[in-house]
Every structure is written in C-alpha cells, then in structure tokens.
C-alpha cells in the first residue's frame, strides 16, 4: 500500500484542491488502478473537500466508474443502434454463455470483465467489440470464438471449468 500511496498522492496533486476536480480524480485513479477503492475515494474526498456521500453518489451515477477490481482482460460489447441491428445482442448472449457471467460482471477467477457499452461511433464496422482497448470489427459468433482463443490459455481454462470447451 505504501508504494501505491505514493502514486496516489502524485495523482491527487495533478489538479487544484477543488470540488470540481472530483470526476477528474476518480477517472485518473481508475485509469491507474483499474478501480476505485473505498480508501482511495476517501483520499480524493479529503483532497477535494467533497463529502464522501457525494463522491460515492457521483461514482455510482456514472457508468464508467468501477468500485471493484476488474479482471485481467476487459471485453466490451458495443450496443449502439447499428450494432443492435447487426447482431450485437447475439454477441452478448454468446459471451454470457462462454464466460458464465452477465454483462457488468467479472469471472470468479478474475480473468475477464465483460460489459456492454453505449455506441462507440464505429457503426461502419458493426457489430464491434473492444478487447483490452483494441477494436474488433464485424464480430460474429464464429469470430468471437477465434478472438477468445487468441486471448490464450487463460480462456480455455475458464471454458473447461465452465464445461464449454
């Protein structure tokens, strides 16, 4: 925690100590650590002078904030209108089946976090999914299988555990 503590203070000092920088700090902390723990949120509150209740209210209002650690790989499925029309929901169902978790959840072994996102504006290549920040165009169930295989050994383990080898 000490090493982390140093880093947190560096992040905290990026912005003036004013309430209006609450969202900036939540974003930067999440970028660094993948999620916002209750301890870091308290530190942000001390810095910005925002009551913890309000910070928590903000962190739960916006969809992009995570209050729990996320998995090693993050899979996001776009559900914009174009993706919806071109089979996005099918991809979601398929992923739910393969990973054994629902959108927004992380697999119990902490390998995968899977979520849906609002339109990414990449409608020409719908349906699109994003794996660890990389866009994958024109997704189909077949391609998904391949993509998942390229994520490596990790995935097969998950699949075996869940009985979907």
């Amino acid at each position: 925690m000490n090493i982390e503590g140093v880093k947190i203070s560096e992040i905290l000092e990026r912005y003036p100590a004013k309430p209006e920088y609450l969202i900036f700090l939540l974003q930067d902390i999440q970028k660094q650590y993948g999620f916002i723990s209750s301890e870091t949120m308290e530190q942000i509150c001390d810095r910005t002078g925002v009551p913890l209740t309000q910070a928590y209210s903000v962190a739960t209002f916006y969809q992009s904030f995570r209050l729990e650690p996320k998995g090693e790989h993050e899979i996001k499925v776009c559900l914009g209108t174009a993706c919806h029309l071109k089979g996005g929901p099918r991809i979601v169902n398929e992923l739910e089946r393969r990973l054994g978790v629902k959108a927004g959840e992380t697999t119990s072994d902490m390998k995968f976090t899977f979520d849906t996102v609002n339109c990414l504006g990449a409608c020409a290549i719908a349906p699109v999914i994003v794996i660890d920040e990389e866009y994958h165009p024109n997704m189909t169930a077949q391609k998904l299988e391949k993509q998942i295989k390229t994520l490596g050994q990790d995935m097969t383990e998950v699949s075996e555990v869940l009985g979907h080898a």
């Binding site: 009551p51 209740t53 928590y56 209210s57 209002f61």
Partner: peptide, 20 residues
Amino acid sequence: GLSAIATLDRGVHKKVGAPF
C-alpha cells in the same frame, strides 16, 4: 449540513443510502 445520505446510482437502480 451533513450529507450523510445521498441518492446513489441512477435511473431504475436509483436508491437512497450512505456511501458503500
């Protein structure tokens, strides 16, 4: 003047409560 409680989350998931 305490803000012990606030509305949390949003939309149909909205609720009243204390942090965490």
